[in-house]
Design a protein around this nucleic acid. Structure first.
Lengths: 145, 145
DNA sequence: TTGCAAATGCAACCCATTTGCATCTCCTCT
DNA sequence: AGAGGAGATGCAAATGGGTTGCATTTGCAA
């Protein structure tokens, strides 16, 4: 077994779910992808990459991983598709381009310093937040204007 | 015609769309509702309240209103349903206290200056955003700690 | 009042996601 | 190593929010 897969095997065992080649492949693809992907994107990549897999298996696997907190499931955005990404246990935000549906990762959380301001000014103790930013990326600005 | 409806009639005329009883009813319901509603919720209310209406008319009307900026269409949340609310033409964010469920209004939008930063650094043209902040208000901090 | 574009109802459709069920495959326990 | 059982998968059908084509109705400008 590949070294990579041994690592995955441990993770899955720790979470109490079985190790299968599909799950290894999905974890590997998620690890390789830079931005959150849809179930269908994964499905297509899996078909190219490895043996055949069923779309419902992809969905079920992603659900399993999400419930184990291995994967983060994003809210549907404008195109009506849910996106998944590996949970790196770090706080992250994205820019969503409404032109080409690309997701761009933000380096740092824009809410970070706000948190202290709110504590000082309003004595409000922030425990969490959601932030989604829409707009046009560099490329799509040319097309849409 | 009701006074209320006269007001709506003007608004719709200004936007260049026809005035119909369905549209009046939808505007009225949106005005009455305190939080964003789904198309189906509206549909059910409309059935109770007025004469019959078709669900696709509700969707089409909401789309029309959204394109005219009379209504704000929110992203689907976890339940997979889009929600609509009247556009009061004010950009606002709230702090949501998870202790007492109180909403505290923020004076200004914390994303405002971020918008220019993103344009400069990434050439990303922001067109909109969602921000929800959770935490404990002054009172609830005492109770929960 | 008339004519026509816009609005509506209806039924059929779309498409992302879910589900029921039969089969297969891991993994634990001998 | 092998057997048995729980969990995973494939397949096809279903679900459900939302959309669309088309015939009919309605608002409204001239």
């Amino acid at each position: 077994m590949l070294e990579q897969n041994l690592k995955y095997k441990e993770v899955l065992k720790r979470e109490g779910v079985k190790s299968t080649r599909h799950r290894f492949a999905i974890l590997e693809l998620l690890e390789q992808s830079e931005s959150p992907v849809t179930a269908e994107q994964l499905f297509i990549l899996l078909r190219e990459k490895t043996a055949s897999i069923n779309l419902s298996t992809v969905y079920r696997t992603l659900d399993t991983f999400t419930s184990k907190n291995l994967v983060i499931k994003s809210n549907r955005v404008d195109d009506g598709k849910v996106r998944y990404e590996l949970n790196h246990h770090e706080h992250k935000h994205h820019l969503f381009c409404v032109g080409c549906h690309k997701l761009i990762s933000l380096e740092e959380c824009p809410i970070g310093e706000l948190q202290q301001t709110l504590k000082k000014k309003l004595d409000f103790e922030v425990t969490g937040h959601n932030l989604e930013i829409y707009g046009y990326c560099h490329n799509c600005q040319r097309i849409h204007s």
